[in-house]
C-alpha cells in the first residue's frame, strides 16, 4: 500500500479518487445513454410506414407513378395552365415560385416539342437523402422521400444534389391562405413548414394512404397521370386500372435521367400528346398562377431567380 508522507498507509483508492471516478462514470453513462436514446429514436421514427400494408398482410405499398406522355398536351386543348401543377399549388398551399410538379417543354428529335410533367422522382437511390446531414429527409419504407421541416437546418445540400431540381426552398415567410393555419404540420403534407427549410413533392402521402389519388392525378383532364403500387402491380389514373408491370413494358416506359442511377419511381410512356390530338408543333404553355394574396402580412414573396 502506498505510504503517506508521515509514514502511515492510506487506502489504494482514496475517497476523493473514488468519488471522482464514480462521478466520471455516471457522467459517461448518462452521455452514452442519451446518445443511444437519440440513435434508437431516430431509427424508430425513420422506419415507420406511412401507409397501411396491403390487405391484411404485411406487404408494404411501393408507390410509383406513370405519366403517359401520349395523353399529355400541357392542357393546351383545355386552354388553361397545366392543371396538375395548379391543383398541386392549391392543394398544398404552395408559395409563389414553387411548382412541385412542373410541366417542362422538351425538344423532340423530329422537331416540335413534348410536355413532361415532372414531379419529385421519388428515387430509390435518392441523392438528396444520401447527402442530408441531419436525416431531415428520408425514404419511407414505401419508397417515398419525405422531408421533416422540424429538423431541416436549411443547408440546401439536398437541392444541390437533386439532379431533377425538384426541391424548393422557403426563402422567406410564404403567403398562406387562412385555412392553411387549420392544418397541423406533418411531413406527409408539409403544410405549415417554417421559412428556411426545403420542400418538395411528397406524392400526396396523406391522401394515398386513405386510397385517394394525388392532386395532380385527380386534376389531369386527360387522365395522363397514373398512380400505382409496384407491390400490388396495379396503377390507376382514376378511370382505368392497369397492370403496372405490363403497362410499363408494353409501352416502352422510361425514367428521367435513368443513367444517373438514381432509380426513380416515376415512369414516363413516350409520346407528345398524340392520343389527345396534339400536334408536336403546337408549342407553348399557359403560365401557372398562384392564387394566394401576395399582401399577406409578414409575407415575403420571391421569384425564381434573383433577376
Amino acid at each position: 500500500m502506498p505510504e503517506n508522507n508521515d509514514g502511515t498507509t492510506r487506502p489504494a483508492l482514496s475517497r476523493r479518487t473514488f468519488l471522482k471516478l464514480a462521478g466520471a462514470g455516471v457522467l459517461g453513462l448518462t452521455v452514452a445513454g442519451q446518445g443511444l436514446r437519440i440513435l434508437t429514436a431516430r431509427a424508430e421514427s425513420r422506419t415507420e410506414a406511412t401507409t397501411a400494408p396491403i390487405g391484411k398482410g404485411k406487404r408494404l405499398r411501393r408507390w410509383s407513378a406513370v405519366i403517359d406522355l401520349r395523353r399529355c398536351d400541357g392542357c393546351q386543348s383545355a386552354g388553361t395552365a397545366p392543371q396538375c401543377a395548379e391543383a398541386c399549388i392549391r392543394g398544398r398551399f404552395l408559395p409563389e415560385p414553387m411548382q412541385w410538379i412542373e410541366v417542362y417543354e422538351h425538344e423532340l428529335p423530329g422537331g416540335g416539342t413534348r410536355f413532361m410533367p415532372t414531379p419529385c422522382m421519388q428515387c430509390q437511390n435518392p441523392p438528396c437523402v444520401n447527402v442530408c446531414p441531419v436525416a431531415a429527409t428520408w425514404s419511407t419504407p414505401e419508397g417515398i422521400v419525405l422531408i421533416d421541416q422540424r429538423r431541416c437546418i436549411g443547408c440546401r445540400l439536398c437541392m444541390a444534389a437533386c439532379p431533377y431540381e425538384r426541391r424548393f426552398f422557403l426563402w422567406g415567410d410564404p403567403p398562406l391562405p387562412p385555412e392553411a393555419a387549420l392544418v397541423d404540420y406533418s411531413p406527409v403534407h408539409q403544410i405549415g413548414a417554417p421559412k428556411g427549410t426545403v420542400m418538395k413533392c411528397d406524392f400526396c402521402t396523406d391522401m394515398t394512404s386513405s386510397g385517394r389519388l394525388p392532386y395532380c392525378a385527380q386534376a389531369c383532364p386527360n387522365n395522363a397521370i397514373y398512380f400505382g403500387d409496384l407491390e400490388e402491380d396495379l396503377a390507376t389514373n382514376g378511370r382505368n386500372v392497369v397492370m403496372l408491370s405490363s403497362f410499363l413494358s408494353n409501352n416502352g416506359a422510361f425514367r428521367s435521367k435513368e443513367d444517373l442511377g438514381t432509380k426513380p419511381r416515376v415512369y414516363y410512356i413516350p409520346g407528345q400528346g398524340q392520343d389527345v390530338g396534339r400536334s408536336p408543333f403546337t408549342k407553348g404553355l399557359k403560365p401557372v398562377e398562384w392564387p394566394w394574396d401576395k399582401t399577406t402580412e409578414g409575407a415575403k414573396t420571391w421569384k425564381r431567380s434573383s433577376r
Partner: peptide, 14 residues
C-alpha cells in the same frame, strides 16, 4: 376484375 385506389376496372393480365 379489380379495385384499386377506389377505381374499379377489368385489368388485362396478358
Amino acid at each position: 376484375s379489380t379495385s384499386f385506389m377506389n377505381t374499379e376496372d377489368s385489368v388485362e393480365l396478358g
